[in-house]
Design a protein around this nucleic acid. Sequence first.
RNA 1: GGGCGGUUAGCUCAGCUGGUUAGAGCGCCUGCCUUACAAGCAGGAGGUCGCAGGUUCGAGUCCUGCACUGCCCACCA
Length: 922
Amino acid sequence: MPQELSKAYEPGAIETRWAEYWIKEKLFSVKTPAEGETRPVFTLLLPPPNVTGRLHMGHMLNQTQMDIIVRWHRMRGFITLWLPGTDHAGIATQMMVEKQLETEGKKRREMGREKFVERVWEWKKLYGGAILDQMKRLGASVDWDREYFTMDENLSHAVREVFVRLYEEGLIYRGNYIVNWCPWHETAISDLEVKHEEVAGKLWEIRYPVVGSSEFITVATTRPETMLGDTAIAVNAKDERYTHLHGKFVRLPLMGREIPIITDELAQPEFGTGAVKVTPAHDPNDFQAGLRHHLPQIDVMDSRGRMNANAGRFEGLDRFEARKRVLEDLREQGFLVGEKDHTLAIGKCDRCGTVIEPRLSEQWFIKIKPLADRAREAVESGEITIVPENYRTIYLNWMANIHDWCVSRQLWWGHRIPAWTCGACREVIVARSAPEACGKCGGKVEQVPDVLDTWFSSGLLPFTTLGWPEKTRDQAVFYPTTLLITAYEILFFWVARMIMFGCHFMQGHKQDAAIKRAGGWGDKKNDSVPFRQVYIHALVRDAERQKMSKTKGNVVDPLEVIERFGTDATRFTLAAMAAPGTDIAFNESRTEGYRAFANKIWNAARFMFMNVERVKPGLRPGRTAEGGCPHMGVAGFEILNLEDRWILSRFNRVAGDVNEALGSYRFHEAANRIYDFFWGEFCDWYLELIKPRLNFEEGGDESAGRVACANLVNLFDGALRLLHPVMPFITEEIWQAMYEGTPPVKSIALAAYPAADAAQMDLAAETEMAILQDLIVSVRNLRAEMKIEPKVRIPIEVFAPEAGIRNLIEQNHGAVERMAGVEKITFVDRALAALGGSRGTARFDVHVVYERKIDVATECERLRKELEKIEKELANNQRQLGNEQFLAKAPAKVVEGLRRRAEELAVLREKTTGKMRELGCG
RNA sequence: GGGCGGUUAGCUCAGCUGGUUAGAGCGCCUGCCUUACAAGCAGGAGGUCGCAGGUUCGAGUCCUGCACUGCCCACCA
């Protein structure tokens, strides 16, 4: 007999067991397909979580969606590669380890670079795998044999290769520019790592005395402390207020040096006083103006945002303290002439929240325009599609306005820039490996201390994980990857960079032509793109729609949710709530509901096993001739009764819908379709309907019982396969039990995914079943209203003028009797709708024969409401049907449907009013 | 300063390309321990689809404006 399922559904044990099994059996490891392989390939790169990461709901949503799509493809016969790995996460990891050192009373700088990096590696070894371990709990069906780390030697080698090539192509340059500087991290960061925040600030007006005159020129500034580094005052050439001052000098207050008044469009007459101080070393606009006018650049701060020697007596003060002191001094000396409220957007470091200091420093940049142009083209032309489509526009706009990318970081943890400077002649050498000496003067060289932005290496992953720069078979097969599923947050950080790098470095690449292209993916021929489609998923928020954040303390820990409700239920929640384009407010009550769903499946399975043991021992689900799982909806299903035709038809329809929904990332629709089918149709109706057949001992047909049992098993098998991508664990557990340890394939994850089979659909059966359901519900309804005790079986009378309907009910009288607690059905030739204890529908009247006083007032109230609804709808229908324009323009199907409905409504109105008359309702 | 999204039942959300009666879960009410399941079963109440116009034979769905709300982008003092 089949393996026993425990009485209670306890997800914990089941889930760990199968997660381990899948890994142990290497079920998701993909061998490189040989030449001549023609099966379609599906490749997906896991957005690498940070080594420092702990799994949060965002990951879980992301990974659930990926796993659903991946499992779905694998079951449909694709060679399916899902590539996992982790990111070294330069800044984040360095911070983490530094904090750890702090608790030991150690400092990074005292330790020295080499020791520190060693320490980070140790840390990585100990804790770096945490997030991937957590992933295993989710059942993510990744290929663990191909797991990578962005600092692995082969990937690092590729990073160096890319850097050198870009440099040789003139796409990387080094120079002194204003960059976003985080004084806390003491490193440059890219534009993307700066978050702007509106704050209520002040606009101070400072007057500078004009040299050789008693006049002053007043400038407005939000950052008075930078005046210490002013090297000019700018006015607009067109601004007549200042024409007489062109070419003159002012004496810089507090510092005493003379600086010129220049004309530059930097100064806009409308803003402030129309005159602006120019501080080339501390503002990007001023920097540009400074270049235009060959102004000196005076840096007045150090790397930690403290004033340096150039700031005179303010040296050593923190920049904010310096601001206060500068203002005090200016006020005292009569230079501060105005102070206004002013809201401004200040940039803060994405990671630590420190106010960014625009800082002049020597950095490495990628000349982005040539790369961006091709990356934009790839999306514009449809070589890469972005879903939902509105992100396409966002992407294109961003690409069109992109600035050069500062890729150097003043950190120790990361890919060191492959560049060396000569100690003697300052020559810069960019090379694949360390040069022995300076090629120019023979001097000693030293490697540049900077490392690369983390996103530099992750941007290369689609091809570096497949062996680049070697030309590998893996690349020929798996590149371009098929799909990328990710959050909007990293569209620019990561997705955009992958497209730029992919298009550049994989130019001319051709995917193995023998590999079948799956429909919908990559109909365009350009194979240099890193992926053919990007699906952007929603953000997971808390139940109050707030963004989850540690500081708010509203983070929902997925592992805790899993602990309580199970992975399957949690996955199902995320899938069921993931409508494309809208954020998910994670609500635990939903998860609770889906655990109940899992429990329902569990118990339905127990019911099945109970019957297999009793009715048809040794029964297994049907297999194909080759011994595999049926590809079509259900195999080995034998039709005896209406309910068989009906459920088979429903199953196929649902399978069709689910496949379609998954194909367009409508996860919620797929999940809900399965849920409704399994619970609302399979359990509520089908199982109940076949129970009498299974209980043939009480005088029923034994062979029909055995068929029913076989049908149950085969249908269950199909339903499990349909559900498996969303709830992998419970489906595996039950499915394995059904095969008693000898399944046709090692796991349901490798079984065939059900597809809709038109031959198994039966519209007539669905219509007939709906009528029976209507009759059963009507009787249940009446019983509830009449407060008939559940145990009492009552006789009913049915009036069905159409012979077909009468036959239908007659043939299925057993089902009606059982499902509605009916003792006997008597067919009569007179209308019954007007009687007490009766209900009239368009097709039949049913009367419950039972002596019970009916609360006339309540009944009348109910009828009044119903009549109102009927009349409202009927009036609406008739208005439309009387409209010639409608008849002429609306599709025939709609008109026809409306007409039929109007006829029904007329009948219902007749029956309802008749009854009201009979009851004497007012 | 630009751009994008949301507003549907008490709560959380579906409702794809406009088409007959706007759905689900949770919560609520009534009745049931009916031998798969009380994490269950049966029945029920509850909505002028944010507001105002417009297009259309027909609008929750398309257009315009407004209100509230959330997000992203942005080197202007």
